[in-house]
Design a protein around this nucleic acid. Structure first.
Lengths: 197, 197
DNA sequence: TACATTTGCCTAACAGTGTTAAACGATTTA
DNA sequence: TAAATCGTTTAACACTGTTAGGCAAATGTA
């Protein structure tokens, strides 16, 4: 019975339709706008049938995450293939990584847990730490008479390393060895301070 | 009438109780576990009265965020006060920042939008990029015969800078100048590659 | 003291969420 | 032809944030 095959193919297709619809909604309305009923609407079914393809909403998210990692991996591989020297490869890889994050921002958010909650308040409240840091950085750099932009840049360099490291630790829940954390922290802070003196 | 004062004080108190209850729930159940009715339960009221103190749930989150930034700012200030040389101050500040993130993890998550969605799937799927990166890093470092731990450390250093930078950009929605981004990216990638060669 | 007004708080409800159980018609199997 | 299975829907449950209405006690006014 070849109809079995066709039915299986159809099942696979609606499965993909669910994932596609989900991601479409997310691109339009963000992760908070995603709901089972909206997915159902988009694929012209009612909500419960989704549960015949995915055990729950999180399973959909997990599968999308998986697809995201596969896509990222492929792009990284093709970045490798473009160069011969490993140094060039590495640089191309991180540039590819950077591009991936901004051409698939929603996907990146899901994969690495980047969320935006409220911004208006934050932008002003954030000024406290920002001011303190930039003041001290300016003091460290006072011999080279840096511009405000340079100070800002140095601040963000610090911030990137340390926030990045914190984020990995929170997401991976201390999967990383404590010694590695300490080493990176010490290296990064010491290194940047030295570079700006 | 002195009773007016007392009533005002009581109002201020329940306002704080709401914020306190909210944060207590979050520490127990995470940000997803927070609901208006649970807050109401904890302060022994019903949900609607919360709306006499806060216009909506997000307003509570915003106020908590604000308190978080105030607390962080204070701790940073006292880190500054402990040292004289700006280099030492800067180091102490980032160490304080690091500590703040892990003694107030939930708060940090709210302040800087760090979310964890699903982990089981991710940890395995994440291996794709991880393997590619560490392979190339190992190749770059092959002359110094590095251990697996060293390679892992270098990978996380890269990852921290770049993920951190991406996260800031996503959260602040391109508040940062493009030139600063490019500069940091170039500096970071180039710098780390040079340091591992 | 008597009435009117404000205050504090609650119940009930609306619209939305994820998820499950029951049902029903169509299709496949025996 | 009868039985079983499949695909799908409707209805419901227990939640979510949020709003409207009402009730009773406290307060203000005469």
């Amino acid at each position: 019975m070849a109809s079995k095959d066709r039915i299986l193919r159809q099942k696979e297709e609606t499965r993909n339709n669910i994932l596609g619809a989900a991601y479409d909604i997310v691109k339009e309305e963000g992760w908070n706008g995603l709901s089972m009923r909206k997915i159902a609407d988009k694929i012209e079914y009612t909500a419960p049938i989704i549960y015949e393809y995915f055990s729950n909403k999180e399973a959909i998210l997990e599968e999308l995450t998986g697809k995201g990692f596969v896509k990222l991996t492929k792009e990284l591989q093709s970045a490798i293939d473009k160069f011969e020297k490993p140094e060039d490869q590495l640089e191309a890889m991180w540039m590819t990584y950077w591009d991936f994050a901004f051409t698939n921002t929603e996907m990146y958010q899901l994969m690495f847990g980047v969320q935006m909650t409220c911004c208006a308040q934050r932008c002003s409240a954030q000024e406290g730490p920002y001011k303190l840091f930039t003041q001290v950085i300016a003091e460290v750099m006072k011999d080279s008479n840096p511009s405000q932009d340079i100070i800002k840049q140095k601040y963000f360099t610090f911030f990137s390393v340390i926030h990045g490291l914190i984020a990995i630790n929170i997401i991976n829940k201390s999967d990383i060895l404590e010694t590695i954390n300490a080493q990176i922290l010490k290296d990064a802070i010491g290194g940047i301070i030295k570079s700006i003196q």
